[in-house]
Each structure stands twice: as C-alpha cells, then as structure tokens.
C-alpha cells in the first residue's frame, strides 16, 4: 500500500470513529422516544452512517460500505416515519453499529469479513416491520438514460435518500481512450476524481468495435457513470472529474421530488 493510501485510510478511520463515537447513546435516545420520534436525532445518525458509507466507497472498503448501506436504509425508513424504533429494532441497529465500528478499527482486514448476518438482520427489520407499500417501493428501479440510448439504474429508495440529502444526480460519460488515455490519465485517476466529487450509484463500460484477442484494440471505450453530489453546477462537476463540460449533464428521467 502506498504512503498516500495509508494516509487516506488513517484519515478515514479517524473521521469514521468520530462520526460513530456517540452512536450507542444516540440510538438508545431514539428508542426512548419510541413513536414520538426525534427526527433531528435520527437525521444526525443517518448522516453519520452515510458519511462512513460514502468515504468507504472512495477507498474500496466494500464490507464497511455494505454494512453502512444496510444501516442507512433502516435509518432512512425511520426518519420518514415508515418504521417505529422498537427495542428489538434498536438492538439490531446497535449490534450492526458495533460490528461497523469493529470493522473500522481493524480496517486492514475488513474486506475479508462477511457482513451477511448483520445485513440480513437489518433487511429483516424492513421485511418484518414496514408496510407492503414501503417494501414495494424498495424494489422499484429508476432508469436514467445515457447519451447513447443505454440506461443506468438505481433503486427508487436510493434516489429518495439522495434527494433528501439535497444531492443532485449527474451522468458523466467519457471515452476512456480519447478523453483519458490520450490525455495521459489512467482510469484509476478518473475513478478517484469521480469519487472526490460524489457517490457513484451505477456505471457502464462499453467497448466500441471491441473484439477478442485476435482483433485490434477497441476504437472507443465508452464509460458512463451516475453520480450523486452536492454540486448542482455541471461545470463544477466536470472540473472535479477533470473532464470537459460536455461530458457531464444532469440526470434525466427521474421522478419529481
């Protein structure tokens, strides 16, 4: 691991530990409120977990990201009054939060841990304690067209989370050959720049004229990514991703907020 990566991971650990330092007390306070929900407090916990999820994606910590995502889903339903925080639900959240803090404390080994049991327990909360209409909405998919007639997709639930966070969705489309290779950049540098701008929700890579090993190199490698960001200016998104402004456009086809 490079020195730069070590510094990034150390920073991630310190920031995540700060975000989650008070989560046990916060969840118990949410439980004490019961149906008389303190929405501001749930929002605080939600944003803390969302920050951990977003940062983990930036550095490829997939297990931490998966567990934080499952926690975030439950907290989002709670803050929308689709889920009442009972003792049983809060206990499950506490066990998952404790596991998340354990993964962060041992970040180097975290990707080797299977979070399936905690993720299943969190999904079980949603299956067992929310209305059928809410569960149906979690299964809905929203298609976002790319400029080449294909689609990127996200769940309606993820879209709602991003919209409630005040994030804007953009589609960044570029050719990995002419926009990246020919400008002396690598795909990894592009991914890092994208992640510095926002959260990557879906992506597609399509090789034009791409054949097998007996063929020439593809003429183009079209990469499209759906990104959620606090930036609403296309120019700023393009600048952050280090691509020309015509490679970025606001996502279309989204239902109204």
């Amino acid at each position: 691991m490079s020195l730069e990566n070590q510094e990034i991971i150390t920073e991630f650990v310190l920031e995540s530990q700060a975000h989650l330092a008070d989560i046990e007390h916060q969840l118990r306070a949410i439980e004490a409120g019961g149906a008389n929900l303190d929405v501001d407090l749930v929002n605080t916990v939600f944003r803390a977990v969302h920050s951990v999820k977003g940062a983990s994606g930036f550095i490829g910590l997939t297990t931490i990201g998966a567990l934080a995502h499952a926690l975030e889903n439950v907290l989002n339903l709670m803050r929308n009054h689709d889920l009442v925080p009972t003792h049983e639900i809060i206990d499950t959240l506490l066990r998952a939060a404790d596991a998340l803090r354990g993964l962060i404390a041992d970040v180097g080994q975290s990707n080797d841990v299977d979070p399936a049991a905690h993720v299943a327990a969190l999904q079980g909360i949603i299956a067992g304690h929310t209305a059928p209409a809410v569960q149906a909405s979690l299964q809905q998919t929203v298609l976002v067209p790319t400029g080449t007639g294909e689609s990127l997709q996200i769940s309606a639930h993820t879209l709602a989370v991003q919209q409630q966070l005040g994030h804007r969705l953009h589609v960044v489309e570029c050719d990995l050959i002419s926009d990246i290779q020919d400008k002396g950049r690598t795909p990894l540098a592009l991914v890092r720049d994208l992640l510095s701008v926002g959260e990557l929700l879906d992506s597609r890579l399509c090789c034009e004229d791409g054949g097998d090993l007996d063929h020439n190199m593809p003429g183009a490698m079209r990469f499209a990514v759906l990104i959620a960001t606090g930036l609403d200016d296309v120019g700023l998104v393009a600048q952050g991703c280090d691509v020309s402004v015509d490679r970025v456009r606001p996502a279309t086809g989204l239902p109204p907020t």
Binding site: L176, I177, T186, P187
Partner: peptide, 8 residues
C-alpha cells in the same frame, strides 16, 4: 499501473 488500453 493499468491504463485504458490495458483494461481493454
């Protein structure tokens, strides 16, 4: 390092 053509 892997560049775009390397990925291809």
């Amino acid at each position: 390092i892997i560049d775009s053509k390397g990925l291809a």
